[in-house]
Amino acid sequence: NKVQTMPAGGGASHGLTTPVRPGTADMGGGYTGASDMYVNGLTPHQSQVLNLIKSCRAAEGMSIQELKNRLKGMNIMTIKQAVEFLSNEGHIYSTVDEDHYRSTDAD
């Protein structure tokens, strides 16, 4: 007589569970409300500064001081931050010194 013993085990189905994370992918930025509407990816302050620099025909560009004079009421820090942003993005570049900027659009 042969007694066959079936080896137990093995076959239990360990289902691999892949954890599903709720989709919270947020690229950030974007539309933040009507009071701070972005135009072409620029804040109103940034586009104002850019437009002024674009309008300048001088070879050395426009100085921060002149921007400040034209943009009455705009904080000097806001202007400087806008200039820095626009420079980083390549919209403007400094000319004779770090106080004068020209637009890459104008020629």
Partner: peptide, 20 residues
């Protein structure tokens, strides 16, 4: 002025890389 030309070139490159 060399400095201005270089700055402009660098700015144009930054602008181009942003627009890709």
């Amino acid at each position: 002025m060399e400095r201005i030309r270089k700055n402009k070139e660098a700015a144009l490159q930054r602008l181009a890389s942003r627009n890709i």
